[in-house]
Amino acid sequence: MFNRIHHVAIICSDYEKSKDFYVNKLGLTVVSEVFRVERKLYKLDLAVNGIYQIELFSFENPPARPSRPEAQGLRHLAFEVDDIEKEIARLNDADITTEPIRVDEWTGKRFTFFADPDGLPLELYEVE
């Protein structure tokens, strides 16, 4: 039986740009950072609200992948928030563009999408 999701791995095209985005703009916490010489890649472990959840990788010349929320494969990565308008303002202040707020027709909860530097769709999902 599964306990929970352990982590999500993200491969970026520009390590420094993505590190700045996830750490300085989104506010995730660095758990560890290593450079793997044999594979020529960085691996940055990040925590969301104190819980290790994201691995950011920098492989050389990774192939592009469709990444809109409706593309086949992993649809998006969602961050739970208490106040969506406050988080949208924080992201917009960091020059991150967000889509208009939508309402989930089944749950009545509000959500919106934005993108990381490689166009990976990210979501804010309000739980309050």
Score class of each variant (00 low, 15 high):
Leu77Asn: 01
Gly50Met: 05
Ala94Glu: 15
Arg102Gly: 04
Ala94Met: 14
Val37Lys: 13
Ser58Gly: 10
Asp116Tyr: 02
Asn49Pro: 00
Glu80Val: 14
Gln53Ala: 15
Phe21Ser: 03
Ser13Leu: 02
Val48Thr: 11
Val81Thr: 10
Ile5Pro: 04
Leu91Asn: 05
Pro63Lys: 14
Lys86Arg: 14
Ala47Gly: 05
Ala89Lys: 12
Gly50Glu: 01
Thr112Asn: 04
Ala89Asp: 04
Thr98Trp: 03
Pro63Asp: 10
Ser18Glu: 01
Glu60Arg: 13
Gly108Ile: 09
Glu60Val: 13
Ala64Gly: 12
Glu16Phe: 08
Lys25Thr: 06
Val37Glu: 15
Asp45Ser: 13
Ile5His: 06
Tyr15Phe: 15
Gly50Trp: 03
Ala71Tyr: 08
Ile5Glu: 07
Ile5Lys: 00
Leu28Phe: 14
Ala64Cys: 01
Tyr15Ile: 13
Phe114Ser: 06
Asn3Ile: 07
Phe21Arg: 02
Gly108Tyr: 06
Asp83Tyr: 10
Ile10Cys: 03
Gly119Cys: 09
Arg68Glu: 12
Arg39Asn: 09
Ala9Glu: 12
Asp14Glu: 13
Arg102Phe: 09
Val48Trp: 06
Met1Gln: 08
Glu16Tyr: 04
Asp118Gly: 04
Trp106Glu: 15
Asp118Thr: 09
Ala71Lys: 00
Pro69Cys: 06
Pro66Phe: 08
Thr107Leu: 11
Asn92Glu: 15
Thr107Met: 10
Phe79Lys: 00
Leu28Gln: 03
Ile11Met: 01
Leu120Lys: 01
Ala9Gln: 10
Lys19Phe: 03
Phe35Ile: 06
Glu85Val: 08
Gly108Thr: 11
His76Ile: 09
Asp104Tyr: 01
Asp45Gln: 13
Asp82Asn: 15
Asp83Met: 03
Leu44Trp: 04
Val30Pro: 01
Tyr42Gln: 10
Glu87Asp: 14
Leu122Val: 13
Ser67Trp: 00
Leu124Asp: 07
Glu128Thr: 13
Met1Asn: 10
Leu124Ser: 07
Pro66Ser: 08
Leu44Lys: 08
Arg68Met: 05
Ile84Trp: 04
Glu55Trp: 01
Val81Arg: 03
Asn92Lys: 13
Leu122Asp: 03
Asp118Met: 08
Leu26Met: 14
Glu85Arg: 14
Arg65Met: 10
Tyr15Gln: 07
Tyr52Ala: 09
Glu33Leu: 09
Leu74Asp: 00
Leu122Cys: 06
Gly27His: 04
Leu77Lys: 00
Trp106Met: 10
Glu126Trp: 07
Glu33Met: 07
Phe35Met: 06
Leu124Arg: 05
Asn61Pro: 00
Ile54Gln: 06
Leu122Met: 12
Asn49Ile: 04
Phe113Ser: 05
Leu77Ala: 09
Pro63Ser: 12
Phe2Trp: 04
Ala47Ile: 07
Glu99His: 11
His6Asp: 15
Ile101Cys: 09
Leu46Asp: 02
Phe79Glu: 04
Asp14Tyr: 01
Ile101Ser: 05
Cys12Arg: 03
Asp93Cys: 05
